[in-house]
Nucleic acid binder design. Sequence first.
DNA 1: CCTCAAAGTTGCTCAGGAGCAAAGATAATG
DNA 2: CATTATCTTTGCTCCTGAGCAACTTTGAGG
Lengths: 231, 231
Amino acid sequence: MPFQPVARPEDLTLFKNLSAEEIRSILNAARPQHLEAGEFYFLQDDPAEAFYILISGKVRLLQFTPDGQQTLLRIIVPVTPFGAVALAEDEVYPVSAQAVEPCAALVWGKTLLNQLLSRYPRLAVNAVKIMAEHVQEFQQRFTEIATQRVERRLARMILRLAHQTGVKTPQGVEVNLPLSRQDLAEMVGTTLYTVSRTLSQWESQGLIRAGRERILILHPHGLVKIAEEET
Amino acid sequence: MPFQPVARPEDLTLFKNLSAEEIRSILNAARPQHLEAGEFYFLQDDPAEAFYILISGKVRLLQFTPDGQQTLLRIIVPVTPFGAVALAEDEVYPVSAQAVEPCAALVWGKTLLNQLLSRYPRLAVNAVKIMAEHVQEFQQRFTEIATQRVERRLARMILRLAHQTGVKTPQGVEVNLPLSRQDLAEMVGTTLYTVSRTLSQWESQGLIRAGRERILILHPHGLVKIAEEET
DNA sequence: CCTCAAAGTTGCTCAGGAGCAAAGATAATG
DNA sequence: CATTATCTTTGCTCCTGAGCAACTTTGAGG
């Protein structure tokens, strides 16, 4: 058995309004691809040749600038599609996709993808919807970084991550991702120093408990307040 | 004659790989909508009920934050589609679309749009491509604002605008848009003061000539250098 | 259990740029 | 042509957050 099947594919936005049979045939057309931690599904500026759905593990989407800087654009968790630029023709990947832990993904090559899109028009419509969400998210994040200060951006990001991958524990919600201070800094557009200082401050206020690549939210409401309060 | 027809619709990404006849029938299904300067095609948080293509004039896409701040996300020039979120279901517009001068646009309502999308699957595929470009642009701008300083971001933005709407004059390239310092500030995520200072400095270096809501680029290469040089 | 590399913390310094205020330019209007 | 609203410039001050350095903590591997 080469890969974990998708549990309830009909719940995915991508497969909405497709029959179970159609979904099965689409899934069967994919090939699985496993990666070890640190390996890349694709690199920025590579020709976009495939579209992916992550089945297990976690993937980071990184963007490099010409002068060697880096930003962490998003963390992909199961079950989410990524590499959707491959749906467009003659594009290169605008980001690199790196496995942060052992990962399994379903892969559709470009030509196959085009066949599927014309055979199942709903698929294209659903893809539009997914892309629209991404556009919205990044417009929003652009506005945030342009108008809000670091503390608020960081609070929002941690809440967002908790929402995505949060795991309830007896003490609070744990962000189930190995994220260094550097990673967080890249996500909100600041430095690891400022992240470290901010987390320390929150810890002393009893809002969170911060460990090595680990964040436990003790008092979510406090973070929400920082994320939303007008100041 | 209620509106200017689209000159060469087959050149638009949206209509690629559709026959002239199909394009005609799609265009005929639209209704025209004229606005005066200052009026809005739609407002942020309104239910997304229509999709637009701008035929003449210029439209600003604005995003407001809960605390009253504002960012100028993009300027739409003819012939560009906007309001593409309407392609997705049950969404609200994430931005407001304001005419900056008298405008004409073609409008397709949501239900009509869905009919067209299922009748012409290529339309959906093309829409994905357009959305993919937008995602890329905002990912890029996010990375820029997160890693680069104001001067470079401003240089890039002005070059981008010149590329979009630049008009050649005997003295140089003029950005053919009435943009205040405030507008520019919102686009690159800074304040009108910093924009004003930066433009003044460039003017004293002979790179540009800056007027009231007017920018004339005398020495494009100088700007490119600022936009790209590693410093 | 010890060692070492990687991740995190925190003090200090400094600069980019925000924000206010006051004055100057520009364009629209009567 | 004068008036007024709007946009722009620029001096000044102050603060957020960047960046470096030195030190501490954590966890993986021998």
